[in-house]
Write a protein that binds this DNA or RNA. Sequence first.
DNA 1: CGTGTGACCGGCG
DNA 2: ACGCCGGCCACAC
Length: 131
Amino acid sequence: MKKKVAGKKVIAAKAEVKPTVKEYSFFQDVYDVVRQIPKGRVTSYGAVANYLGTKLSARMVGWAMNAAHVAKPKVPAQRVVNRNGMLSGKHHFGTPTAMEELLKKDGVTVKNDTVVDFKTRFWDPAVELGL
DNA sequence: CGTGTGACCGGCG
DNA sequence: ACGCCGGCCACAC
């Protein structure tokens, strides 16, 4: 029973519990989605953006990820790659191999900075979460 | 309040 | 097949 959301953020409903302050941010939404990514799965910025309703602006998802490093609880940013399955954001990790290592721990094989079987491991929030 | 930037995506030459 | 270009949204200065 998938609800027809007017291209709005479903999870936002949870975060929107407290609209009093601007505690809720686009970043929070991104973090929530990313945190829901199952282990061993990966998704793309565009997919998250699409789920949030801003598919045309996948950039800001990446921007949000930038702050994800200091976000709490820890956000598995390593599970978010570009639509090519390439670890475009690996350079933003502490070490150039940190992202690969984390993915490897998740059981994801990374070859040449690219997720192997990315298509198979792809996890679309808009589908999995039922948009 | 205006400008710049960003871990992207899709289209076009 | 490859490279360049624009768009779009939110946040920081």
